[in-house]
Design a protein around this nucleic acid. Structure first.
Length: 485
RNA sequence: GGCGCUAUCGUCUAAGGGUUAGGACGGAGCCCUCUCAAGGCUCAAAUACGGGUUCGAAUCCCGUUAGCGCUACCA
């Protein structure tokens, strides 16, 4: 039974690298019929905030990829303590009474000699009895792993992505398991939890590849089976550095993509193509195709750059993400798209209950008409505002069309003509427009383009006659007359 | 500094000893056209560098360089 986990620490918003890790874990779990565990690694009480915990749920919830189990590391302190005791009892760990922060001196020493720091002198040899006595006397200490540099010359494991990995134990320092304040470090808590939750595959960022040797030591020390490891290439910012909340800000936040009007699956599709490939030139893959095709073997080893723009206001996201979103927007089943558009219009204050009831057919048809040239859901409330509301802006290019000589008069005349039209259809409107153009000796295009501008506030858009039909006779007559004022 | 990982168009990637090094985004152009998209077609654009191995290397090996990661009583 496959059990995978995503274990974010709630220190800031969920970023897209984390989301990608979650997606890969989720795909693997679903493909294998396994269990997706979400574990909030909130042992760092100082930096954890409820807001970032919520950001994780918001972000993952938005992706529409649900987890099966939820755990909070902070609630599992007893387990971590127990693991520490086991390691100490087995002699895999020892108490280090060196005052916290004293490592600063060793740091200077290390830089001078170039030799790596491995342990604080005189600590790992302290006898158990003396150690117990000092501990009982209340002397503060950190618990460190005793790297088996003599008995185990080399640590090895097979990474599903990076292949065989080996490291000399001589290069592994006596890392901390428990801090002098009694709290477990990441390494201890994470491994103790992974063991307790019976995680079978650890799929995580490549930044943990080197840490894995320490984890091997802990799993072995605990006497539990090692899980399989699969490390993912990192997501990089355009400047080539690892994506980070602090350096790259909101543009790497998952919720920023939600707020920018991305469709969850389009975004999942985009992220799944970063570091993994179906190898057959396909770019658009449904969720089921992703589940079926995903494999750890097809994950590549080089880091991927997310090409977002810091500067741009509208299209700051990676162009391919934008393109994928547009593709889904115009090709997905209209019925599936409607709820997302409804949500967007609600947020923008443009939703009318009738769109979901009496005017539902009109709503679906209109969305279908305008979606082909939209990129994000935001476009429905911005560029598409005129279809759903009477409060819409006339963009500058559209205003220019209306300002052309004679345009306003022609539209007023057209308005009068259309009032008298019995059957208001694309065909009848076109007849009237062309008749008017003929009578006034102007090209039909002049009227057509001006009409589109007056009706939709946009200089560009669908066929003007389709716009007439979508706006309807009453509103069209009004707007044409108004545009002439 | 030490240890490790990686290196194909600007970006995401395919090709894993023999290909005109393929696709996608983005860019340029053409067609279509009431505008703008969409769609169709076309073009420009890459194997980091240097050595090997081999009849033959983007592909295997070594080195260099570059980038990234780890090197905390952060996660």
């Amino acid at each position: 039974m496959v059990r995978v986990r995503f274990a974010p620490s709630p220190t800031g918003f969920l970023h897209i690298g984390g989301a990608r890790t979650y997606i890969f874990n989720w795909l693997y779990a679903r493909q294998k019929g396994g269990t997706m565990v979400l574990r909030i690694d909130d042992t760092d009480l100082e930096r954890n905030t409820e807001a970032s915990r919520q950001s994780i749920f918001d972000g993952l919830g938005w992706l529409e990829l649900s987890w099966d189990e939820l755990h909070h590391q902070s609630e599992r302190a007893a387990l971590h303590r127990q693991a520490a005791e086991v390691l100490l009892a087995k002699g895999c760990a020892y108490r280090d009474f060196t005052p916290a922060g004293a490592g600063g001196e060793a740091e200077g020493e290390r830089e001078r000699t170039g030799a790596p720091w491995l342990f604080n002198p005189g600590q790992r040899e302290t006898g158990r009895e003396e150690s117990d006595r000092r501990s009982r006397a209340g002397e503060p200490f950190a618990l460190r792993f005793r790297a088996p540099r003599e008995s185990v010359p080399e640590l090895r494991f097979e990474d599903a992505v990076y292949g065989p990995q080996a490291r000399s134990t001589g290069d592994v320092e006596d890392f901390a398991l428990v801090r002098s304040d009694g709290t477990p470090t990441y390494h201890l808590a994470s491994c103790a939890d992974d063991a307790d939750l019976r995680i079978t595959h650890i799929i995580r960022g490549q930044d943990h590849l080197a840490n894995t040797f320490k984890h091997l030591l802990i799993f072995d020390g605990l006497g539990v089976a090692r899980p399989q490891f699969a490390h993912l290439p990192l997501l990089l910012a355009p400047d080539g550095s690892k994506l980070s909340k602090r350096r790259h800000g909101q543009v790497v936040s998952v919720t920023a993509y939600r707020d920018a009007g991305f469709l969850p699956h389009a975004f999942v599709n985009f992220l799944s193509l970063l570091g993994w490939s179906p190898k057959d030139n396909r770019e658009m893959l449904s969720r089921q195709e992703l589940i079926d095709l995903f494999s750890l073997e097809n994950i590549n080893r080089n880091n991927a750059v997310v090409s977002y723009q810091e500067s741009g206001t509208e299209d700051w996201a990676d162009p391919k993400a934008l393109w994928l979103n547009a593709q889904y927007l115009r090709t997905m089943a209209i019925e599936e798209l409607l709820p997302y558009v409804e949500c967007e219009l609600r947020v923008a204050g443009m939703w009318k209950e009738s769109y979901g009831a009496a005017e539902r057919a009109w709503f679906a048809k209109t969305v279908d008409l305008i979606r082909v040239r939209f990129t994000t859901l935001k476009d429905f409330s911005r560029r598409g505002a005129a279809y759903f509301s009477d409060r819409f802006a006339i963009e500058p290019a559209a205003a220019a069309k209306l300002d052309q000589p004679g345009a306003r008069e022609l539209l007023r005349e057209l308005s009068e003509r259309l009032k008298r039209v019995e059957e208001f259809t694309e065909e009848s409107v076109e007849r009237e427009v062309r008749a008017l153009a003929g009578e006034r000796g102007v090209k039909a295009g002049v009227i057509i383009n001006a009409a589109r501008a007056a009706l939709s506030g946009q200089s560009v858009g669908p066929s003007a006659f389709a716009v007439f039909a979508a706006i309807g006779k009453e509103r069209a007559v009004q707007r044409l007359a108004g545009g002439a004022c």
